[in-house]
Computed example of a mutant assay.
Amino acid sequence: MARATISDVAAAAGVSQATVSRALRGSANVSPATRAKVEQAAESLNFTLSKSASTLASGRTMRVLLLVSGPLNTWFNASVLQGVYDVLAPEGYDTIPAFVTNREQLDRFFRDLPRDRNADAIIITSFEFDTALHDQLSALGMPVVGLNSPSTAGFDASIGIDNAAAITSGVQLLRSLGHRRIAFVHDYIPHDMVYGTSTRVAAFRTAAAQAGYGDDDIVMIGADHHDTTPAMLDVTAAGIVARLLSCEQHPTGIMGETDEFTAAVYKELRRQHLAAPRDFSIMGFDDAPVSRTLDLTTLHQNPVELGNAAARKVLALLRGEAPEQTHELVPATLVLRETTGRAPNGR
């Protein structure tokens, strides 16, 4: 049997082909009765309007780019992708994921984007954007929405976790448990990229000072390279733990930049025959599945919901509307588990 065409639907519904196209695209200038008649005819003939035809008529690609930092298969990035897809798919939009891991890749992505012009909007996750790039995309008519980015600069709208408030609650927990020396462990921070998680380093220093810790009471230890393969993460964690334990008075309260990074450090501390919370307290950030596996105290965020919110802001901007909240910060919730407790021997 030959595949039904738009002319077949038009004949069955008793309308023009143009009316069929408008009705199936959801155009407003079609009466409800006519739209129902066209939809019934299309269903009976198993006809679906070609997306390419629809987009040519509307001037839109019906695609939204999602640009993330780091691999797509990480817990956070995959969850954000799911959240964006859940909102955009019912509206007829495809979500096109892409990722960058360094400045060279980022510059190349935006250098090629005007030529490709294969999307109506872009969501940028977890790294700093700038106003020059925003202006470039604005000239193309592409709204830009940030998700968990370090600042709101360069974004038409944004959604993110309140990292400063979250880190403060973690520091206050360690203080209330009697930890007099505390540490923050974090991944490598490149000189030419600013990531959303990188802001937690400065937030920790600020929160510690506000809680009454002096400079000699805090220890900041970061990785000297970036490699998240399991083997290299273990090597990085071993180096960080060696530096922690070589302190004249080693910290007993430890916070990590992410659950994944914290888990590697925690694993190495246990390999050195130290136990939490008997010898130290340790907490992560994210509430990723690994934190539940290790019963790790952490700060909870929900990247699926962040993706939902970012996608809703995109849809509003594409409709020419202002989002309900243009730039939005949501709290991260402290989740107490087995790895935090009173400081050992009052230290």
Score class of each variant (00 low, 15 high):
66 L>I: 01
139 A>G: 11
160 G>K: 05
128 E>A: 15
106 L>G: 07
258 T>P: 03
325 Q>M: 11
256 G>K: 01
339 T>K: 07
286 D>R: 00
291 S>L: 03
17 Q>W: 07
333 T>F: 12
288 A>S: 10
285 F>Y: 12
289 P>L: 00
206 T>F: 06
92 G>L: 07
345 N>W: 15
66 L>Y: 02
195 Y>G: 04
29 N>P: 00
234 D>E: 10
106 L>A: 14
300 H>R: 04
71 P>E: 11
76 F>W: 10
172 Q>E: 15
261 F>I: 06
275 A>H: 14
217 D>K: 00
35 R>A: 12
133 L>W: 09
94 D>S: 15
44 S>R: 14
225 H>W: 07
226 H>V: 07
109 F>R: 03
64 V>D: 04
330 V>M: 06
259 D>G: 06
119 A>M: 14
344 P>E: 12
24 L>M: 14
130 D>A: 09
161 I>C: 08
218 I>T: 13
47 F>S: 02
217 D>I: 07
29 N>W: 12
157 A>T: 11
284 G>A: 07
343 A>N: 13
208 A>H: 03
224 D>V: 00
147 L>G: 08
318 L>P: 14
164 A>W: 00
62 M>C: 05
170 G>V: 04
155 F>N: 01
104 E>V: 11
156 D>K: 02
133 L>D: 13
58 S>D: 09
31 S>C: 08
320 G>S: 10
